[in-house]
Deep mutational scan, measured.
Amino acid sequence: MQRVNMIMAESPGLITICLLGYLLSAECTVFLDHENANKILNRPKRYNSGKLEEFVQGNLERECMEEKCSFEEAREVFENTERTTEFWKQYVDGDQCESNPCLNGGSCKDDINSYECWCPFGFEGKNCELDVTCNIKNGRCEQFCKNSADNKVVCSCTEGYRLAENQKSCEPAVPFPCGRVSVSQTSKLTRAETVFPDVDYVNSTEAETILDNITQSTQSFNDFTRVVGGEDAKPGQFPWQVVLNGKVDAFCGGSIVNEKWIVTAAHCVETGVKITVVAGEHNIEETEHTEQKRNVIRIIPHHNYNAAINKYNHDIALLELDEPLVLNSYVTPICIADKEYTNIFLKFGSGYVSGWGRVFHKGRSALVLQYLRVPLVDRATCLRSTKFTIYNNMFCAGFHEGGRDSCQGDSGGPHVTEVEGTSFLTGIISWGEECAMKGKYGIYTKVSRYVNWIKEKTKLT
């Protein structure tokens, strides 16, 4: 034993070699072989497995989906700052455009905790909710729209109204504003409101030439003092309507412009014939205590009207009353817009006519005020429907199939267009061939041609 100890002390290297040989010859039971080890760690190889990531292109799944990435790591994937920024906006807080917040056709661009709407022409605001041009839906104005110097929408209202708090709607500024039905039992019968379409306001006024200088022999019209197929109006439903009495009662109609003036057809009036105007009328054979009678003290036909040349060209006249009318729910003026808007309103496509005229061709006159909704007829169809001249200051309205029309005794009465609950004068009943005849239409004086003249002559002093 002493000898062994001496050998170990003198030859430590020998001992180490012996131990190493023993270990190498022993069977290893701690580690699995290569094949079995792979069965336990069965993990798919990654895209760049075996390579240094710093030297390969980034992978979106590896960089940002398996674990949260930084902007720089995302930049490695896209290799483009702009594309990385677009991805980053949604990656950080989701897609803010998912709810489609942009209105009126706006395009949404996502941002971090926010979004941006790219608005089409005519709109602005956070969600493109603000109209900035009158060309689109009248700028959301209830009545009139004008573009300011910086191309912003400025709404306005006709006389007797003021802008509401929203700067879009119009509200009454006087007790009985024009064009409004205020009798409670008839307010439910107000005709369907007309909503502004998209309009090209630059070209809204037709490029028409008034044929002022045409000389033409007097034409022989049949029954051209021209509501057939209409309905009984309720008291106060058309408070701007008046009836004219002269040699015979209810020979023509008219509309209240203001307390002192009536507008009617020029062919209705004769110099030297006494005319009485009755406002607030409903049943011409009954006294309903809503009527107001006034005498006409002055007749002003349009300066281009000449019955000797043509009885229905420039067929418009103004009547001055001896005493002002007292405005109330049964006696209310009709609204008159400017030339541009009167023309736009007419193009809405349908209007209402009213009167006490004959209820059928050569038949009896109506006792109760009649009204009828009539569609506008395109000019080409209008011209083809008659052998008589249709001037540019006239328009056609009615039904091709016949059966409904204005008729004798309705002449001078109103053709009105309702705009968001307020009625505007767009025409004056003038003439036609018979009444409600198939293929024939009622012919009306186009008020847009005469609004400046009306307003100039009827100013209240």
Results as ranks from 00 to 15, higher is better:
7 I>Y: 08
7 I>V: 14
8 M>F: 11
10 E>V: 14
11 S>F: 14
18 C>E: 02
25 S>L: 12
30 V>M: 13
31 F>H: 08
34 H>W: 07
35 E>F: 08
40 I>M: 13
40 I>F: 09
44 P>R: 04
46 R>Y: 10
49 S>E: 15
50 G>S: 07
53 E>R: 15
53 E>K: 10
56 V>S: 15
69 C>A: 03
72 E>G: 12
80 N>I: 04
81 T>Q: 13
83 R>H: 15
84 T>W: 03
89 K>R: 13
91 Y>K: 15
92 V>D: 15
100 N>A: 05
102 C>F: 00
105 G>V: 00
105 G>M: 04
105 G>S: 05
106 G>K: 00
108 C>N: 00
110 D>W: 05
114 S>I: 04
115 Y>Q: 02
118 W>I: 15
120 P>S: 11
121 F>P: 15
123 F>C: 01
125 G>V: 01
126 K>I: 13
128 C>E: 02
128 C>M: 00
129 E>V: 02
140 R>I: 04
144 F>T: 00
146 K>W: 07
147 N>A: 10
153 V>G: 05
154 V>M: 11
172 P>Y: 04
176 F>S: 04
176 F>G: 02
177 P>Q: 01
184 S>C: 05
185 Q>E: 11
187 S>G: 10
188 K>W: 10
189 L>N: 13
191 R>P: 13
192 A>R: 06
207 A>E: 12
209 T>S: 13
218 T>E: 13
219 Q>K: 11
226 R>A: 07
229 G>C: 10
230 G>P: 11
232 D>N: 12
239 P>K: 00
245 N>R: 11
246 G>N: 09
248 V>L: 12
249 D>H: 10
254 G>S: 01
256 I>N: 00
261 W>G: 00
262 I>H: 01
275 I>E: 01
276 T>W: 07
276 T>F: 05
280 G>H: 01
285 E>H: 12
286 E>I: 11
288 E>L: 06
288 E>F: 05
297 I>E: 05
300 I>N: 03
301 P>T: 10
302 H>M: 02
306 N>H: 09
308 A>D: 13
310 N>R: 06
311 K>C: 03
313 N>G: 06
314 H>S: 04
316 I>M: 03
319 L>N: 00
324 P>V: 04
325 L>T: 00
332 T>F: 04
338 D>Y: 03
346 L>W: 11
347 K>V: 03
351 G>N: 06
358 R>Y: 07
359 V>W: 12
360 F>P: 12
361 H>W: 08
362 K>T: 10
365 S>W: 07
366 A>L: 10
368 V>Y: 06
371 Y>N: 09
374 V>N: 02
379 R>L: 14
384 R>Q: 14
387 K>N: 13
403 G>I: 12
404 R>V: 06
405 D>H: 14
406 S>G: 14
409 G>D: 05
412 G>L: 10
415 H>V: 03
416 V>S: 08
419 V>W: 09
419 V>D: 00
422 T>E: 02
423 S>Q: 08
423 S>H: 12
424 F>H: 02
426 T>Q: 01
429 I>L: 11
437 M>L: 15
439 G>D: 06
443 I>C: 03
444 Y>Q: 01
447 V>E: 00
453 W>F: 05
461 T>Y: 10
